[in-house]
């Protein structure tokens, strides 16, 4: 298996999320088949593949967002820092505090900018005083590169921002609870090229503090932002490798076909 060989050659790297034989079923449909994938700390891993290939499904396994979907069943083992996240004793609320998520469509709450960012810290009891929350809000917005644009209108609703600003607000909201891993499900697909460039730049900066997994339809984006790339096809993890390796010298012909635009 390519993935296992890769694992050995990268023994020096720090594995953040370890998946072994992960299967996902939506009712009768077997959506994700026997996925073995390691995600390394402080790197950006991008998941690519044609629509319906299971990349978003895999992403949603990592913070158990699939739990919300009726009839969805996950088997196999996913471990975050060695702890099985599907273990019965694990509280999903704590898991999601450690694994944040940014969605395809910006989804700010219909609250003020401040309350949007402070929402996560509040429910996890991170900031009890106003000044603590102020500090978290400011630093989150600064890290998301949004502070200078919005610092004068923190009491205005988050829904009033432009699409790109909303998405950065959602990123700020996710990093406000200080997660270890951030999952991004096509975070730029609803944005224009300039907003996309800003988000990509942001992703690169965030890598120093967070482990990032990003699902994307744009292969250029995967090439620009990620260190490692995993290619999914029909629910199977076909190939995972260094991004450069995948785009210049893929070992599987399906990967070759997809990145050269022959299908997908």
């Amino acid at each position: 298996m390519a993935a296992v060989e890769q694992l050995q050659s990268d023994a020096a790297r720090d594995t953040k999320v370890r998946s072994r034989d992960v299967n996902v079923y939506y009712g009768e449909i077997h959506a994700l088949k026997h996925v073995d994938l390691d995600i390394y700390a402080n790197e950006v891993t991008s998941l690519i593949g044609p629509s319906g290939c299971g990349k978003s499904t895999y992403l949603r396994c990592l913070n158990r967002m699939n739990d919300v979907i009726d009839g969805c069943r996950v088997t196999g083992e996913i471990a975050l820092d060695g702890d099985d996240i599907y273990d019965k004793s694990l509280d999903v609320v704590q898991l999601r505090a450690r694994v944040g998520m940014v969605f395809q469509k910006p989804n700010p709450f219909p609250k003020s900018l401040f309350d949007n960012i402070a929402y996560g810290p509040r429910i996890h009891g991170l900031g009890t005083h106003k000044d603590e929350l102020d500090e978290i809000v400011q630093s989150s917005l600064e890290r998301a590169g949004l502070w200078n644009e919005v610092k004068d209108r923190l009491d205005k609703p988050g829904t009033g921002l432009s699409g790109g600003q909303q998405q950065r607000l959602c990123i700020a909201r996710a990093i406000a609870v200080n997660p270890e891993v951030i999952l991004m499900d096509e975070p730029c697909s609803a944005l224009d090229p300039i907003a996309t460039a800003k988000i990509e730049e942001l992703i690169d900066e965030l890598r120093t503090n967070f482990t990032i997994v990003i699902v994307t339809h744009s292969m250029q984006q995967a090439a620009r932002v990620s260190q490692r790339t995993a290619f999914f096809h029909l629910g199977i993890l076909v190939e995972v490798n260094e991004t450069e390796q995948i785009f210049t010298n893929p070992s599987d012909e399906r990967t070759q076909g997809y990145i050269t635009g022959r299908f997908g």
Binding site: M101, F103, G120, H124
Partner: peptide
Amino acid sequence: VPQTLRDGAYALGAT
């Protein structure tokens, strides 16, 4: 109320 808002809250660890 859009499902994305619910997802957003769940993803932040809200019950």
